[in-house]
Design a protein around this nucleic acid. Sequence first.
DNA 1: CGAGTTTGACCGGCGC
DNA 2: GCGCCGGTCAAACTCG
Length: 181
Amino acid sequence: MESFATVFPYNSTASASQAATYSNDHNDDYEQFEDDHDQNLDLIRKTLNCSSDEAALDHVSPTDSEAGNDLNSASGSGVKKGLKKIRKPKCAFQTRSQVDILDDGYRWRKYGQKAVKNNKFPRSYYRCTYEGCNVKKQVQRLSKDEGVVETTYEGTHSHLIEKPNNNFEHILTQMQIYSTC
DNA sequence: CGAGTTTGACCGGCGC
DNA sequence: GCGCCGGTCAAACTCG
């Protein structure tokens, strides 16, 4: 990711319609921002101009995240019965990059890949491998602009960054946020 | 051998 | 009710 220009101006109709594809989950009860040592996401939120309250992606404490694991595993395998699914808010942003994966300092494990409608590139699904941390992200290259990678974070890390990365702030300068925080 | 990736199958939500 | 679609699981596989 060397040369990049700002892409997707906020007020373009294109980005507006794309943003509309992401559900806004502010209605869920995210009370407070507990994870103040989550440096990168905090940085993202600042870049996003999110308030801390609205950016409280989830009330994830180490114990809460275990409950989150239960919920998510249940939703995936269809075991969940009678439990209303709690959807976490998502932060989505786009970067112009040759590589799909941003090195944000966390360790991710890929758990799925799907072809999505109206996009010739598959969407990849990643989960944070830190024990008890239930953060997920989706990575997808845009078919309409192959140089742009769209990354969607879901949840809040419950641990310190594993590989402090000085370049992350650099990455942030490339980000164009168009969604839900 | 452990960690991570691939990929087909499965499930739930949603629109018609 | 049915079919489509997105998201997840899990076994097999690859890689260091």
